[in-house]
C-alpha cells in the first residue's frame, strides 16, 4: 500500500533528547569545539519560574534568557549580534552558573561568582548595568539613583532602557531596581518574578 511503503522508506528518525541522538550531538559538539568552530554554547535550565537559557562565550556568561523569552528568538538574536555558530551543551562556566542559580533561587546563595562577558551591552547602558551589579543582595535602588551612579543623573529614561535590555538578568540584578516612588516597576521576567525575587532576598536579609 502506498502510505505503508512511504512510511517504510521514511523509517523513524532520531528526535529530541533520545539517548543515541543526544550522544551523537554531544560528540559532534566536542569535535566542533576542538576545531574552534563554535563561538557560543548554551544550555536550558529549569527554574522555579520556568525554563531559562544560560549562554556562554569564550570569556564567560554572555546572556541569560528568561522563561518569558522565546528560545529560538534569543538564539536568533545572538546569531545576528555575536555569531550563528551556537551549540547546545553543558560546559563551564554554564554548569557553575546553573548550580549557582539553583542555590540562589533556594535562598542559599547571595553572590554569583561566574565570569561575565559584557559584549552585548556598551557605553552608558553598560555603565548602568555595572552599577546594577554592585547593588547588594537584599537592597534596592531607583532608576534615578542608577543614572546618577552611572554618571548621568538626568538620563533616567536611558537607565530604564539599559535595565530593560539587561542581557544578564538575575546575575546582574536588575530586579533590585525600583521606580522612584517605590513601586516595583516592570521586569522582563514579569512583575510576579521580580516581586518573588525581592521577597526572597528580603526574607534572607540584606547584606
Amino acid at each position: 500500500m502506498n502510505s505503508e511503503l512511504e512510511s517504510r522508506l521514511a523509517g523513524r528518525p532520531a528526535s529530541g533528547d533520545n539517548g543515541a541522538w543526544a550522544r551523537l550531538r554531544e560528540s559532534l559538539l566536542e569535535r566542533a569545539e576542538a576545531e574552534a568552530l563554535i563561538d557560543l554554547v548554551y544550555e536550558r535550565h529549569d527554574s522555579p519560574f520556568g525554563t531559562l537559557l544560560v549562554v556562554a562565550g569564550d570569556e564567560g556568561i554572555v546572556r541569560i534568557g528568561l522563561h518569558t523569552e522565546d528560545e529560538e528568538g534569543v538564539l536568533e538574536d545572538l546569531a545576528r549580534r555575536i555569531s550563528p555558530r551556537i551549540g547546545r551543551g553543558n560546559r563551564q562556566p554554564i554548569t557553575a552558573t546553573r548550580s549557582q542559580l539553583d542555590l540562589y533561587f533556594a535562598g542559599d546563595l547571595r553572590h554569583f561568582d561566574v565570569p561575565l562577558d559584557w559584549r552585548l551591552t556598551r557605553g552608558f547602558r553598560r555603565e548602568v548595568l555595572r552599577e546594577t551589579a554592585a547593588i547588594p543582595y537584599g537592597s534596592t535602588a531607583s532608576y534615578a539613583q542608577l543614572a546618577e551612579r552611572a554618571g548621568s543623573p538626568r538620563a533616567v529614561r536611558a537607565a530604564g532602557s539599559a535595565l530593560a535590555t539587561n542581557p544578564l538578568p538575575i546575575i546582574v540584578p536588575c530586579h533590585r531596581v525600583l521606580r522612584s516612588d517605590g513601586s516595583v516597576g516592570s521586569y522582563a521576567g514579569g512583575s510576579p518574578m521580580k516581586e518573588a525575587l525581592l521577597k526572597l532576598e528580603r526574607e534572607k536579609g540584606a547584606d
Partner: peptide, 23 residues
C-alpha cells in the same frame, strides 16, 4: 537573512539528515 543558529538547524534538520545517511 543571515545564517540561523547552528543548534536550531541541527535540531530541526539533523535527525532527517542522519536518517537519510543510514540508508
Amino acid at each position: 537573512d543571515g545564517p540561523p543558529p547552528f543548534e536550531v538547524a541541527l535540531e530541526e534538520h539533523g535527525p532527517r539528515v542522519h536518517s537519510w545517511l543510514t540508508a
